[in-house]
Structure formats: C-alpha cells, structure tokens
Nucleic acid binder design. Structure first.
Lengths: 232, 232
DNA sequence: TCCCGCCTGAGACATCCGTCACACCTCCCG
DNA sequence: CGGGAGGTGTGACGGATGTCTCAGGCGGGA
C-alpha cells in the first residue's frame, strides 16, 4: 500500500511519536496506511464504530458535533502531529464526534489492534497518549465553561485572543492577525449564529478591543485587554 | 499514617485497581494516605497545582467550575472506585476544575510521583487510566453538546433519564426514581437558574413525561420517551 | 461587461432564560 | 403555638440571541 520507510519517517517527525523506540515505530509504520484526502473530506461521523486512529501529517482536521436542527459546534481543531479519533479506542464506544478535513491533508491511519499493541508493549507510547488525552480534557473543560458562562461577544474575544497567541504577529500598533475565516465558520467555533458573530465584532470594535484592517486582517491593540473583557 | 494493608485492601476492591499486579498494588498502598472528610470539603480548586490524585473509597465528589458571577456548572460527579483530580498529572498543568465532597467520604490520596511510577512500570495501570480518561472525555463531549444545543427542559430531561438508568427502579407504572436533590442542586448540574428548573419540571409534567410522587420520588412512565423529547 | 454566488451588515421579531420579588408550604425548634 | 429557615411555584420584566429578511459589496466566470 504505502512505503513503510516513508511512513516511519513521517511518524518520526511527529512529536507524538518522536520518543518511541525505533523497533516499535517500524512496526507501527509497517501496519499503517497513508491517506491523501482533499479539503472537506469527512473522516468519521459521531456514532460510528471506530477501527483505528488518524495522525495528521499535513493539513487540519475539525472535530465537531451537529445538533438535531443542523447547527454545528466545533469541539477542537487539530493540526500536524496530532492524533484525531482516538477516544473510542480506549473505552470501546463509538466516535463521540465527527471529523472533517479543513485542508487538503495527509493522514496516517493506525489500525486499532496495532495501536493497542503499541501502547501495551511500550510505556512511552502510553504516556504519550495519556498526555494527549489530558490536554484534550483540559480543553473541553475550558470549552464547557465558555459555553455555559460567557455571552457571544466574550466567546468571540476568547477565540480571537487564542488565535492571536498562536498566529499573531506583534507590531508596534498591537498584534496583527491574518485570519482566513468567514463569520459563519467562526460561529461554529463559538456555538452561535452567523449574525451574532457580526454583531459581536461590532461590539468589540466599538469598545476599541480590535480593528478590522481588511477582510482577512485583524489588529488587536492589546490582547490582554481583550481577554480581560471576556472574563469580566 | 494509615495501615498499608488496609489501604491495599481498599484499593483492591476498586475496579480501577482490581486488575493490578499484587506487588504494584502493595507499593501504591504503602505510599498513599487515606483521608476521611465530611460532606462539603473542598478537595482542590481550579487553578491550583496538583500534587496527586484521589480515589474515592466511599461517598461522592462533585467536579465543577464557577463563573466570575458565582454561578456553578457541574462537570461530573464521581462515586466509589473512581479517581478524581487526575487530569493535571499528565500534562503538568493546574487543576482545570474544583472538587468538593457531597457526602462524608473516604478518599485515598496517591502522590503524583508514586502514581507516575506505577503507570510507567505497569502497562495495566496505564490502560486503566487511559480508559478512565477516554470515558471522561466522552462525557464532556456529551455535556458540551447539551449546553450548546438544548434548552433547559431538554437538559433536565437528559439528566433525569441518566439518573433513571443508574438509580431507577422499574415498576409496572414506569421507572421510579428516588432523588434527593434540591432544585438548586439540579440547576448547577444543567447550568441554569433554580427557577428555570422549577418551570422545566412543570413542562415535563404537563407533557406526561414524568410525575412527582413526593418531594424525593419521581415516576418516569417511559424513559425512552423522555429522551426522545430531549433530542427532538 | 454582466451576472451570480458568497459574504457581511442590519433591522424586526419572537423566544428563551436569568433576575427580582413575593407567596406558600413543610419542618423543626424554641 | 409561633416563628424562622429552607425549599418551591409563579408572575413580571428585560436582555441576549436565534431566525427571517433584505440590502449592499466583492470577485470570479460566462
């Protein structure tokens, strides 16, 4: 199917697997499959049974739930080096959420049995996975709090402040952020309607917490103040 | 401090540790401390650094977050045999949430280093913890969806249906549920105000989805119908 | 050039829900 | 017996927000 040496090479570049014993890695690589998929491909759907996990080589994957009315809530977005769809591997249930690629992507698929074997045999593998789950759980607690306690403007502020940390470029006027997202995409991430995002942007602008330079560039004069507003 | 043999005995009775190798268990028991605390004791607070985890021997522990305005959101409630406060052990961060006992409780405290040693040395220990984290993550996804998509009546319906599954007693009239909770406590669990719980109860009653027999007994004629209403 | 689709802004409206206020009930204790 | 505390039911009210609708702008393709 795929050249095992190349897969091993790919896995080795991922922080998730970098610490793994070479023999374990080789074996994993031999049993896994590389998939190249286009943006918008649904990798798995909530409720489906799970046959393995994906590790992202290139591109991003959005994990989300859909309400009966069709509204979406993004739970998290993962990028290169991160595993997705791994939760069901441990408790045997179905996928709790759905996953779709946001970009043309390269993914490594590890079959369930192979993966279980790896983490039974190699303590490092277990630690790696546990750390990932811990981080994910922490993120979900954050998300839950945000949804339960904050209004739309505050949720947008927290989302943008987070992006600014990771993708922003500091300038003398503040942090500049190149964000290629429609308001509709943003609305999924903070669990609201597109129109509410539009209004929340206005509110943050009027308070001087951000400026929209053009359709894809934001200026955040003071991320700390933006965060403070959200936590008020 | 505490008799290691008794601690080992206690741990052995917990499904979480039942499968563990005797030697590993003895060692864990020797290093852990049993605490007896009264109802309402705060075990840890969100933001605090973590020095170990608790395993519940007797009683229940509520894990929750508090909003800046003082509103509470219960994330989960754990009972005998379950670990609490374990998330920070893996990614090194602070506690993501707070924990408080609901009953007079008996808790086993495992220091961080001891715990890490156990799961590094014993693959079974790792599997146990991973399974727990997986289940917890699944639960949080559920909670997130509920908060993001459902109204108060639906959230109450889901909560009660869940209780009915775990604590209900089937009778010829439906599932009878003995629930010792004030409406205020319920409001924390579904992230709303006390008055909204009162109104949601009325709404579910009027639809014939439940009856309140007395202050502590509920009758749910058809749990499936209750769930269906929530997912409508 | 001219559409047409997509994105955004904005108003109208209904609904949900949090808050406040108050009444009523039960239980317990003095 | 009286009174207070805690729990519950309910109405009024306002703010937040989802939905519907439409207008305007922008860019790409025919």
């Amino acid at each position: 199917m795929t050249d095992p040496a190349r897969v091993a090479e790919l896995l080795r570049r991922l922080p998730l697997f970098a610490e793994l014993d070479a023999a374990v890695l080789e074996r994993l690589a031999a049993r896994s499959v590389v998939r190249h998929v286009s943006a918008g491909t649904v990798l798995f759907t909530a409720g489906e049974a799970c046959r393995g996990l994906y590790v992202i080589g290139r591109g991003r994957v959005r994990i989300y739930r859909v309400s009966p009315e069709g509204r979406e809530q993004v739970l998290h977005v993962e990028g290169p080096g991160r595993p997705v769809g791994e939760v069901p591997l441990f408790d045997g249930g179905p996928y709790p959420a759905s996953g779709v690629t946001l970009d043309d992507s390269e993914l490594v698929f590890l079959p369930r049995e192979e993966f279980e074997r790896a983490y039974r045999e190699s303590p490092e593998a277990a630690q790696i996975i546990i750390r990932t789950l811990g981080r994910r759980l922490r993120h979900m607690v954050q998300l839950t709090e945000t949804l339960a306690f904050r209004d739309v403007a505050a949720r947008l502020a927290l989302l943008l402040a987070g992006y600014a940390d990771r993708l922003g470029r500091p300038t003398e006027r503040g942090v500049e952020l190149h964000l290629v997202r429609t308001q509709e995409e943003l609305s999924y991430e903070i669990g609201t309607a597109r129109e509410s995002v539009s209004r929340a942007f206005r509110r943050l602008e009027r308070k001087g917490l951000l400026q929209r330079l053009d359709t894809t560039h934001l200026l955040i004069p003071d991320p700390a103040r933006l965060r403070a507003f959200a936590r008020s």
